[in-house]
């Protein structure tokens, strides 16, 4: 089939094309294919905000032509860090190519001061250094710094869950990785024979981030750490919790800036003007700014 284009967040309205109905086995067709691509893109995060690029409504279009997929995306400003843009573009490419029916994914970064270089470089499989020879340092260290922020900001809820369950500060700071196990909806915390059960979600979120950042990999690694990566003296737990809160507020604050710029640039209808956006999941935007912002910036702290 020839290439088709649609807003990636559409498709929930029940208007999937008719020709798909009779052909359930070809995943590259229309809505089903786009839906699969969208699910993959949903795993790609804006590194600065630790939120999905689909949720943030950066994706303008998904075009599918047989086993070739093209994704176009736009960031909140033409000035967004090229390193961050590069990370999102390469992550998007790799995620989409992870689908077994996709042979090649082509990514286009639209309306960015380095859009051409990034689009060309990512599709030619060049490295960031090859694309920006005068850049100092690499993407890897930026990724590491970002992963570290995510670690710090998720630690607070995990610790709070334990404190709320009656684990005392001294016990909290003494925990090793092996003392915690997630099973289904529950996280089990082993306090030397005594086991405490808490909600799995904040603990699993934290484990995910702290493993990605590389701070906790072995069973005997100390589980909770200061922002600098050291173990926490029990009497300092409170200030570490406040620093973790601060990291979350920072991400949320920057998210508000990015959202406002994105909206200023493209209007409330999103980059393609279709009127279909992230908000489609929770109701149509009716022009009420307060409602708009409260759903738009939904995050852990809200």
């Amino acid at each position: 089939m020839s290439g088709s284009s649609a807003d990636p967040t559409s498709g929930r309205g029940g208007d999937a094309s008719d020709d798909l109905a009779g052909d359930p086995v070809d995943p590259a067709d229309d809505e089903r294919g786009r839906s699969a691509v969208r699910d993959r893109l949903d795993r790609v995060e804006d590194p600065e905000l630790a939120r999905s690029i689909v949720e943030l409504d950066y994706v303008d279009a998904i075009d599918i032509d047989g086993d070739r997929v093209e994704v176009r995306f736009t960031l909140p400003t033409a000035w967004c860090s090229p390193a961050f843009a590069w990370m999102m573009a390469t992550d998007a490419r790799d995620e989409v190519e992870g689908l077994d029916w996709v042979d090649e994914a082509r990514i286009e970064l639209c309306d960015h001061m380095h859009g051409e270089e990034i689009t060309t470089g990512v599709n030619a499989r060049d490295t960031f250094g090859e694309t920006f020879p005068d850049a100092d340092g690499g993407v890897a260290e930026v990724r590491a710094a970002i992963a570290d922020k995510a670690r710090v900001s998720t630690q607070r809820d995990a610790i709070r869950a334990l404190l709320d369950a009656g684990v005392d500060p001294q016990q909290v700071v003494s925990l090793d990785r092996a003392d915690v196990a997630v099973a289904g909806d529950e996280a089990h915390v082993d306090l030397g024979g005594l086991s405490v059960v808490v909600d799995a979600e904040p603990v699993a979120d934290y484990l995910d981030r702290v493993e990605t950042s590389g701070h906790v990999t072995a069973g005997d690694d100390t589980l909770f750490l200061t922002p600098e990566g050291d173990s926490i003296p029990a009497e300092r737990l409170d200030v570490v919790q406040k620093r973790s809160r601060l990291a979350s507020v920072n991400m949320g604050g920057q998210g508000a800036v990015c959202d406002a710029l994105h909206r200023a640039r493209h209007g409330p209808d999103g980059p393609d003007g279709s009127g279909v956006s992230y908000l489609g999941e929770s109701g149509e935007y009716d022009g009420d700014v307060d409602e708009f912002t409260s759903t738009w910036t939904l995050d852990a702290d809200d």
């Binding site: 949320g252 604050g253 406002a260 912002t293």
Partner: peptide, 20 residues
């Protein structure tokens, strides 16, 4: 600067930032 402008449509974020 910038943070103060969040009062326009992100009053909650402004409150958090001021709190910090």
């Amino acid at each position: 600067a910038v943070a103060s402008a969040m009062t326009t449509n992100r009053p909650r974020k402004f409150g958090e930032i001021m709190g910090e």
